[in-house]
Design a protein around this nucleic acid. Structure first.
Lengths: 125, 125
DNA sequence: ACAACATATCATGATATTGTGATATGACAA
DNA sequence: TTGTCATATCACAATATCATGATATGTTGT
């Protein structure tokens, strides 16, 4: 604890110009998650940061659909939808079941729906 | 309803190669939000798609902090933090109160905390 | 085996976002 | 008013992401 305080007075860390609140910094640092996790989490949220993917998600919140239904409902070409579905799959946001020639897509779990809905609530305020 | 079916047989929409499920498409299309909203929502979620911003959010979930505390806790230079705080502000994710020379930042509302936590739950599974 | 269909992958030019150095603002103290 | 501190803004090179055309894969019917 005293070590921490001395350390910070030595100015050998990045923030050289200000006088930080050591106690608050200690508290929040203790509760941070692993560095890697922030990157994983950012990758995950990045997926929601694209209107096309959000549209696809919003459809799948309502019901499961095959690729060509998504194309039709969103008026997008097949390549675009398929590409975005790949990204959604790779990030564990949608899953699919093969039914003959078709692939029926659905959301992997409730988290996705929750995040979508809370986000929508936020921007509609 | 019959109109819809005839329309789709005319192949004058983008998805020409497959035989979509008209009924499902109708159902989901009816419940879609305005085109613009998808863009707004994507802009909002984009903010969560960057590790630095997530780190800042994760700190503010725990307690309110001034800029220089955030720099110190995250070992980032002031410009980086300030820039990201500007983006967070512009997108209504954080707010701040001036206290003398300092600016004390906090999350705008509970939505932010919820989205952060549900996302974290998801990737930790 | 072959054709047709539904979906997936690859490659790419156009566009957007990143962190950061340089600089500006605004508050307090002397 | 001058200097210092805390924070904000601007500008930009490096990097990432987008939609899409071209092409591949895998399934069904003949």
């Amino acid at each position: 604890m005293t070590d921490e305080k001395n350390l910070s007075k030595n100015n050998d860390d990045l923030c050289e110009i200000c006088l930080p609140h050591e106690d608050a910094i200690e508290r929040v640092k203790k509760r941070m998650i692993d560095e890697d996790k922030y990157f994983d989490l950012a990758e995950f949220f990045k997926i929601f940061g694209n209107p096309t993917r959000l549209k696809i998600i919003s459809l799948l919140v309502i019901e499961d659909l095959c690729v060509c239904d998504i194309c039709e409902a969103l008026n997008l070409n097949q390549t675009t939808v398929s590409n975005q579905l790949r990204i959604l799959r790779a990030n564990n946001i949608v899953k699919y079941k093969k039914e003959g020639k078709m692939a029926r897509y659905s959301l992997t779990d409730l988290h996705i729906e929750m995040i979508y809905k809370v986000g929508l609530e936020h921007i509609l305020e």
